[in-house]
């Protein structure tokens, strides 16, 4: 198989605000192979959405992105012209957004919006474009797709609209689809349907899928690999089993400890939480980014920014602790007192 579809190296995003500089994304490396689903996981404010938007070239005007490279099938797109960007977006890379209620234009029929995208990128007749739209709507499980073409977004339920968004993303057979919290705005029962649909589509078409989420539960059945982000940095990478089964970074460990497990977590048992709040990311780093919230913090952690360590192929962690979760105390996260939240 040829090389990876997406290679991001050293991505950072600076946003100048009133004299100081916010650094919501500090250094992100990301590789997505053909037919692979990579989940980017992290709390809100960790920089995951901005990472996605900078891959799409859709950052807000005030943001200043920089990177070693962002390669799409070998082509460095980080310095692409606006014209080249427009050719890539919707055609080679497509994006599915969080809120299907607002992501579609309420003024146009579903069919017209799909045809417009297709005809922007392909010289194809209107009726052929419509046929293709019907085909894809059927594929993503929209009932009576022909009738949907003439409906407006507000006439569809949230789940259906997200299916329409997925169909839109697939119109031009892109190599890469970025789904930014695709299920967050949906009911839990619909979430599972949409996730299964994304996984099935991904398997069938062999696209690269980047799934951005704050919900580790979403990740488990869908992702091949997980990239955990914290404070604008990648703190841990690995396969789904590795990261969820044996987390190495204290932050990942804390995240997992804070999820109740059906059948295991008993009534009245304390759930874990990570003390403190996500710090505002500005200025240069002088220590490990997780230092202030880390229960395992050591003197060395304050010494300077921590580099990512490769434990094995595709397995990395940004932490100075020995990569042996068995040596740690798993009950630690549940013993924090709530006062520590304030610290």
């Amino acid at each position: 198989m040829d090389g990876p579809i997406l290679e991001v190296a050293g991505l950072r995003v600076d946003i100048p605000v009133d004299g100081s500089t916010l650094r919501p994304v500090r250094r992100v490396d990301l590789t997505v192979g053909r037919g692979e689903t990579v989940a980017i996981v992290g709390e809100s404010g960790c920089g995951k959405s901005l990472t996605a938007l900078s891959i799409m070239g859709l950052l807000p005007r005030s943001a200043r992105p920089s990177s070693d490279h962002v390669r799409l099938k070998g082509e460095d797109i980080s310095k692409a012209s606006p014209r080249r960007w427009r050719k890539l977006r919707g055609d080679r890379i497509a994006m599915i957004f969080q809120d299907p209620m607002t992501a579609l234009d309420p003024c146009y029929r579903i069919g017209d919006q799909m045809v417009e995208i297709l005809r922007q990128h392909r010289s194809i007749s209107r009726s052929d474009a419509q046929a293709r739209a019907v085909e894809l709507l059927g594929k993503v499980g929209v009932p009576t797709p022909e009738e949907r073409l003439s409906q407006f977004p507000h006439q569809l339920s949230g789940g259906l609209r997200q299916r329409v968004m997925i169909a839109m993303a697939l119109l031009c057979e892109p190599e890469l689809v970025i789904a930014d919290e695709p299920t967050t705005a949906l009911d839990v029962t619909i979430q599972a349907q949409i996730l299964r649909l994304l996984r099935d589509i991904q398997r069938e078409t062999g696209i690269g899928l980047v799934l951005i989420t704050h919900d580790l539960g979403v990740v488990a059945g869908v992702a091949d690999r997980i990239v955990v982000m914290y404070g604008g940095e990648v703190v841990e990478t690995g396969t789904c089993d590795e990261v969820l089964g044996a987390p190495l970074h204290p932050y990942t460990e804390g995240l997992l400890r804070s999820i109740p497990v059906p059948g295991e977590t008993r009534q009245g048992e304390r759930l874990g939480f990570i003390p403190g709040v996500v710090p505002r990311q500005s200025g240069e780093q002088t220590s490990c980014g997780f230092l202030k919230r880390c229960p395992y913090a050591m003197a060395e952690c304050a010494g300077g920014p921590v580099a990512i360590r490769d434990i094995a192929h595709g397995r990395g962690v940004r932490c100075l602790l020995p990569p042996d979760p068995g040596a740690r105390d798993p009950g630690l996260w549940t013993r924090f007192e709530t006062e520590e939240v304030a610290s």
Partner: peptide
């Protein structure tokens, strides 16, 4: 600033 305009841009419309 709205979402559907971001969508339109994300799909490469002129």
């Amino acid at each position: 600033q709205s979402d559907h305009v971001r969508t339109a841009r994300a799909y490469g419309l002129s």
